[in-house]
Design a protein around this nucleic acid. Sequence first.
DNA 1: ACCTGAACACCGTTCAAGT
DNA 2: ACCTGAACACCGTTCAAGT
Lengths: 203, 203
Amino acid sequence: MARPLSPKLSLDLIAEEALALIDSGQPFGVNALARRLGVTPSSLYSHVSGRDEIVELVRARMIPDVGMHPDPTLPWDEALQATLWAQRRMYASHPHAILLLVELTITSPDVVAFYARLADLLTDAGFPESDVLPIIEMLDALAIGFGIDQASPSAIWQTSDTSSRFGRLLAAAEQGDGRSDHAFELALSLLIDALRRRLEGIH
Amino acid sequence: MARPLSPKLSLDLIAEEALALIDSGQPFGVNALARRLGVTPSSLYSHVSGRDEIVELVRARMIPDVGMHPDPTLPWDEALQATLWAQRRMYASHPHAILLLVELTITSPDVVAFYARLADLLTDAGFPESDVLPIIEMLDALAIGFGIDQASPSAIWQTSDTSSRFGRLLAAAEQGDGRSDHAFELALSLLIDALRRRLEGIH
DNA sequence: ACCTGAACACCGTTCAAGT
DNA sequence: ACCTGAACACCGTTCAAGT
């Protein structure tokens, strides 16, 4: 029972099951993945160079979700807003993926293509070349920061202190997705507003 | 040679050496830390409940750095800017710490106190109560996002494509700290500007 | 080409034993 | 109270062997 007549594994299968494992909330690992695939851990190394490549496969599989790519027919600010919300929905669907993705350099062409479209959007909107990359990095930082916020245990801050202003704020605050969504909405409207003003200042 | 006359370990020593290990760039772990301390891994469990508590000790040790706490004598926008830059400098000094910190709930009273001061700053500035926590979360997301940006390998995006606009932007971009600092500066000025405008709109 | 099974050098944690 | 050393159930990866 060494080599089967038809392969038991494929890159697609590996990526799919890896994402399923991640979404299940159990810790991601080569061994756990192999177990799910009904295969020995070492079998995976016939298809993949190791753990990192599996994570890259997962990243590539997450991106093509609906609505990620900016719509070029929309005004830049609306297109930007829609894209960032789509990105947020993506991270929301796979909250446990983000910490895995964040420590690897992005190599998937699909993902690079996404950022390239974002760059085109900003350039076409009229932002100077020197602004484009910093803005993208800023948006990326925000998306990652909020993505992690969503992945974190529901309470970021844990305190029994209800006497201070902050303690009372925490006690009165929304919990879970609502809290995080609210903050994201505020951040997005503030930033796009600021970008709009910056663009007006230029022209 | 079981129990020594004077203890070989202490919480302070553990935290100090843990941070040193993290800053060295080597992967953080209980075993590696014990090796550095000249001690058996199991010895650590006489002082600490496990890996997570060690990470919390590190967090508490990182915060009291100079300039972190907002200065109440300054105008709110200047105090906010100074605090966020201080926070950024902190993450810059310990780039490898952030991914460890990010997955644990904050329990250290010192750290909670820092966020409490931030809440006071915003309330005193005149922001409505319902704004304060979302704004703090937004700032936190930004700090974390940029912190991770700094911890990442110098190139976030890796592409050989120099024909597209994005490819050329990447090729022409600053490298390393300068790139990240530039984006952070832009983000901060945009956000504080937007906050200032929001405050004016309220009063 | 593709899988298995044994092996390797690691993890984090527990626990009896020693002083 | 505080450390050691052995043990446990895990990691990710390599490699010879099998078809």
